[in-house]
Amino acid sequence: MSETETSGTAISARGLVKSFGDVRALDGVDFEARRGTVLGVLGPNGAGKTTAVRVLTTLLKADSGEASVAGLDVVEDAPELRSQIGLAGQYAAVDENLTGIENLVMVGRLYGMRRSDARGRADELLERFGLSDAGERIVKTYSGGMRRRLDLAAALVAKPPVVFLDEPTTGLDPRSRLDLWETIESLVADGTTVLLTTQYLDEADRLADRIVVIDLGRVIAEGTSEELKERVGGIRVEVHLTDESSAPAAADALAPMSTEEPAVDGDRVSVRVESETGRIMEAARRLDGAGVDADDVAIRRPTLDDVFLTLTGRELSAEESGGEADREEVPA
């Protein structure tokens, strides 16, 4: 790697391997995040996302491979590296018997800040995260979304140049998820480099500049959100026909909407489109013009399941995925 490349790279993992007993949680993982960008690490439960984050944040030593964050080696320079990172996890690691302020002041002081400086920073972050009114309250009384925001605030106390967010929205209700997304977006606007792990394609899509998809401890795809969606067939308009026999007529009617042939699957016909806007209306008009009845016309956006089905040939249900144990049951 040349000097110029190194200076633009905030996070780098090369050939990371980590086994727990017989299970290879990381099986030669490579990725990189450029300074000031968001790298989304997308994968199901047990894919190795958290293990990768633990290696990069010095919580865990890899069996082999190299990794660096902010130009510092995760093993050789671990103590110094820790002052350059912030970590927020899916388990919301805040002390629930302390108040919001006490949590942030404690973390600030452990970063080496003076008590008064830590207090000032705590007030600033609580304000920014909409927790000012709750600052004096014990965290036990917080909602799930508030805890996540406090956890995220704790990761930002020392204004670290690199922040790791391990499944920041898993288990949150849609409203809190949106709030947290907005917070993360404002973070990136400050020039912070973010590594975000997630099980949700829409989350990676919204927040990440680049995405690596990992499965069974390996990177199976990499690119921008657009490139990934391209690989799994992009956005499609899908029509559910009233009568299966009208499928050929429907396909003919929808064909002009795309440069690709419509796909027919029983009473479902779908066609690839470039953008979503106005496509449902257009499809409905065309079907109406051809005298074809449809029960449902909808836009289908690719999900992590589609990415998985395309890349690995197997179905994935993130919620039901048995994690590491999958490894034995699924042929590689």
């Binding site: 633990r54 919580l59 103590p79 820790r82 690691a93 452990l110």
Partner: peptide
């Protein structure tokens, strides 16, 4: 919490 502490300098 232990992970949090260990990730700090």
């Amino acid at each position: 919490l232990i992970d949090r502490f260990r990730s700090l300098p």
